[in-house]
Design a protein around this nucleic acid. Structure first.
Length: 844
RNA sequence: GCCCUCGUGGUGAAAUUGGUAGACACAAAGGACUUAAAAUCCUUGCCCUUUUGGGAGUGCCAGUUCGAGUCUGGCCGAGGGCACCA
């Protein structure tokens, strides 16, 4: 059998795909975007999956006549470059650019239809210059502020650590105990858009519900009320926030945060310092905080209950009250909040039931846990007998009437801290003047470039340590000034790159208004679920912030449709010493027993997990491409699972993909080389064309619904059908005309093979999607299911739209089902046109 | 703890949205071709029957329906998100 050399044809067609242009000026615009990669060194299978999915969509839409924008770039700033540079004594820029070169070549090997003329890299001055402009615009709109917050401070590295860089309370590199330190940092005031970010989620009908829900929870809106308590004997109020003002008559204590300002004012002794110490030792990770024991410190202060004259409420300082949510103070109602309940039990505070539950309306029995559900109010004066919701409304009215508080909405979302004490990031374009004021750099001075000679080997912030980089002058006054030495969080870089792609060469502005208004929003965004919150939320914020700065900017949401693909997984292997092994170091026999190739020792097969370098369960895409061809790799990664689910990598799977593509090639060759001059049998030809038309329809549908695995299953079927049809009385011309349709359908999946075959078939309009004949679809025979008492007894291939009468006769004449009906009384018949007929008979 | 999603053969999965369950593929077993291997092709896959056939069957238990993988309620299991958010 003839074999096609995939390496040769792929190379040939990749040269033609360089800087693919999928523009159809007459068509409707379609912006297809995949999340751009971090240039870490080499592409991994996750990239292959992500970009193959994107490529299928881009090519498909183009063939359907859309005007397609399909760009690619590099998320090129970030910590790994700094670390790699330090280890290998390189410059981050050189390391990054080298990686981009390698990865770009690898992406080209996949045969992607990318317009490389639009390529951008976030570490280029031509990119971050505009980011600095946007920062200044945001600053001028009041969307940037400077605030003190607690951070994870590594005292050895002299830098801030992200939460994931803190391991068991220690720095990941220095192993030093991480401190909780208050630092002044820059923030984007994302909370100014809390409501909009929440509300606009409803507009995003093309987003997975799951992602929208995650964002909704993250934003975390709660409606409640603010309430002031008088502190007895002091001329001070204490303000709390609660979502359960209805439980006010069950209040038995007030708890405030350790950082609350009242803590500075009351008489505290050594005991308080001890308590504070104990709290601070719990750690800063959220998990540690959540699982920590509830601790309280009783102050000598009491608050006056706002509705009960004689009731004094003790004030505690408690470790579980957060300073940065609400007012840093709560009132505790132990009967109806589990935390308050735990606290009350520990410090022997009264538990007063104010909401009756179905099982227990009296308050005589001791409660074993808090009751959170609905019920009628009890023990609550004027609220008694109301439902929880009614009681909430009434008490808020009373509170507002008495002017001791008001209805309030609170969000869990916090402002976005964007300062990083790092070198390899976008410099923040702010300067500090001698008089202590902080002002933006004049836009004419942009970009504020990174120095090439920063010392990365010493501890601390390289920009701060640089001998003269930070020294500058204030343009307006000519007075000396000091630059901000922090750089921007790299999430900023990726929050607007999709705008830059619309006009990547524009030197004067971050984006061109007309271009952005034409191409945006992104019609299909594709990437990993791990970005469900941060990247996507920040990008949404950027759109809203930019719209606020620019009246000509039309859109406020960046991504119309979002698709989150699943991960690529592989089994894990460990040798007897417990070291991880790469798949190619292991041999597995048909009984699923594994040995290490090197020394034939036994290998333990672990569960299949997302490919990661640390567990060595990775497969190198380039090796696979060289072995089987890019088309085979693309085909496999789309075929095995639905794209939103995780996929198990399997070498035999790629191997057999390759075999199948080989068969497709051979089928093409058979048709091309056919010399016999068969004439068409009209009946056979008609059936054949109808069937191919149906497959075109089905495959088109599957692609449209992102069911690439289903589309591929149809290709296997159509191949089998075609192989049979070749034996029939069908002319070579008809076979060739129809294989062209199939090969066109394959372009999005296997562009090299499909184009090669189409070119051999002398197809002139390879870029046009085959037409679907709807009339033919309607003519086609359907399968009628014949049931007796709900059990399928026969399936009849019949003409469409047959009436029940016609069908009854047909069944009597020629159906296997008939024997179940002879001598039986039919009580009832259910008939659904073109689907099913079900006879209900007496079972005797 | 709270919220969400999902449970279909040995495996990955399909099922026109309430109408033939297991398409298609991987793996396995058996067979054909071959001196042999590779490649290729075919068959099988739960229970009863020699076959024609018949029956059970989509995590478990109930319900709605002529008909349930699909809808409703409860239970069990897996995965994910949030995690002292008042």
């Amino acid at each position: 059998m003839e074999r096609v050399n995939f390496q040769v044809i792929e190379k040939k067609w990749q040269e033609k795909f360089i800087s693919s242009k999928l523009y159809n000026k007459k068509g409707k615009k379609f912006y297809c975007l995949e999340m751009f990669p971090y240039p870490s060194g080499k592409i991994h299978m996750g990239h292959v999956r992500n970009y193959t999915i994107g490529d299928v969509i881009a090519r498909y839409k183009y063939m359907k006549g859309f005007d397609v924008l399909h760009p690619m770039g590099w998320d090129a700033f970030g910590l790994p470059a700094e670390n790699a540079a330090r280890m290998n004594n390189l410059k981050p820029k050189d390391w990054t650019q080298e990686n981009i070169k390698i990865m770009k070549a690898q992406l080209k090997m996949l045969g992607l239809s990318i317009d490389w003329d639009l390529e951008i890299s976030t570490c280029d001055e031509s990119y971050y210059k505009h980011q600095q402009e946007l920062f200044i615009d945001f600053y001028n709109q009041g969307l940037v502020s400077r605030k003190e917050t607690y951070v994870n401070w590594d005292p050895v590295e002299k830098t801030v650590l992200a939460n994931e860089q803190v391991i068991n309370g220690k720095g990941w590199r220095s192993n030093a105990v991480v401190e909780r330190k208050k630092l002044s940092q820059w923030f984007f005031n994302i909370t100014k858009f809390s409501n909009e970010l929440l509300k606009d989620l409803q507009k995003l009908s093309g987003w997975p519900e799951k992602v929208k829900l995650m964002q909704k929870n993250w934003i975390g809106k709660s409606i409640g009320c603010e309430l002031n308590f008088k502190i007895i004997g002091k001329d001070k109020d204490i303000s709390i926030f609660t979502t359960r003002p209805d439980t006010i008559f069950g209040a038995s204590f007030i708890a405030i945060s350790v950082d609350h300002e009242i803590c500075k004012n009351f008489d505290k002794g050594q005991d308080f310092e001890k308590f504070k110490d104990k709290c601070s030792k719990i750690g800063t990770t959220e998990e540690a905080l959540a699982n920590a024991e509830k601790l309280g410190f009783k102050t000598e202060l009491f608050a006056q209950h706002p509705f009960l004259k004689d009731k004094k409420i003790p004030i505690y300082v408690a470790n579980f009250v957060l300073m940065d949510y609400g007012n840093g103070a709560i009132f505790g109602c132990p009967a109806h909040d589990q935390r308050d309940f735990d606290f009350a039990k520990k410090y022997e505070l009264p538990v007063i039931r104010v909401v009756s539950s179905k099982n227990n309306s009296n308050n005589g029995e001791e409660m074993k846990e808090a009751y959170i559900g609905d019920g009628k109010m009890v023990n609550s004066e004027f609220l008694n007998n109301l439902d929880v919701d009614e009681a909430k409304k009434k008490i808020i009215d009373k509170i507002e009437e008495k002017k001791i508080g008001k209805k309030q909405t609170l969000f869990r979302l916090k402002d976005w801290g964007i300062s990083r004490q790092r070198y390899w990031g976008c410099p923040i374009p702010m300067i500090y003047l001698e008089d202590g004021s902080v002002v933006p750099v004049d836009k004419s001075e942009l970009p504020i470039k990174l120095p090439n000679d920063a010392d990365l080997n010493s501890s601390g912030n390289p920009l701060k340590n640089h001998p003269n980089w930070k020294k500058t002058t204030h343009k307006k006054t000519g007075k000396p000034a000091i630059r901000e030495t922090d750089t921007l969080d790299t999430f900023v870089d990726s929050s607007w790159y999709f705008l830059r792609f619309c006009s990547p060469k524009n030197k004067n502005a971050p984006y061109d208004n007309d271009k952005v208004n034409y191409w945006m929003p992104v019609d299909q965004y594709i990437g990993g679920i791990e970005h469900a919150i941060l990247h996507l939320l920040y990008s949404r914020f950027f759109m809203k912030a930019i719209k606020k700065c620019n009246s000509k900017f039309k859109y406020s949401e960046p991504f119309n449709n979002l698709f989150t693909q699943g991960m690529v997984c592989h089994e894990t292997y460990k040798d007897q010493k417990g070291n991880w092994l790469y798949p190619d170091e292991v041999k597995i026999n048909s009984k699923k027993e594994a040995i290490k190739i090197l020394d034939k020792s036994e290998v333990k097969i672990g569960p299949s997990e997302s490919m990661s370098k640390s567990k060595k369960n990775t497969v190198d895409p380039e090796t696979m491409i060289k072995q089987y061809g890019a088309d085979s790799v693309r085909w496999f990664i789309l075929s095995d699972s639905p794209p939103e689910k995780d996929i198990q990598w399997s070498d035999t799977g790629v191997f057999s993909s390759n075999k199948f593509l080989q068969k497709i090639w051979n089928l093409n060759q058979t048709i091309l080389k056919r010399t016999d001059t068969k004439k068409d049998n009209d009946k056979e030809k008609k059936i054949f064309e109808e069937k191919i038309n149906l497959y075109v329809y089905k495959i088109d549908n599957a692609i449209n619904n992102f069911q690439f695995n289903v589309a591929i299953a149809q290709f296997y079927e159509v191949y089998r059908y075609y192989s049979e049809s070749i034996k029939l009385e069908i002319s070579t011309k008809v076979l060739a005309d129809n294989i062209i349709k199939i090969m066109k359908l394959m372009i999005p999946f296997t562009p090299h093979l499909a184009h090669e075959c189409l070119s051999n078939l002398k197809c002139k309009e390879a870029h046009k999607w085959p037409k679907i004949d709807v009339k033919v679809l309607e003519r086609i025979k359907i399968n009628m299911v014949v049931q007796v008492n709900g059990k399928t007894r026969d399936v009849l291939a019949i003409k469409k739209d047959l009436s029940q009468k016609e069908l009854d006769q047909l069944i009597k004449k020629s159906s296997k089902a008939n024997k179940h009906l002879i001598n039986k009384k039919i009580i009832k018949t259910i008939f659904i046109k073109n689907k099913i007929i079900n006879y209900i008979i007496n079972s005797q």
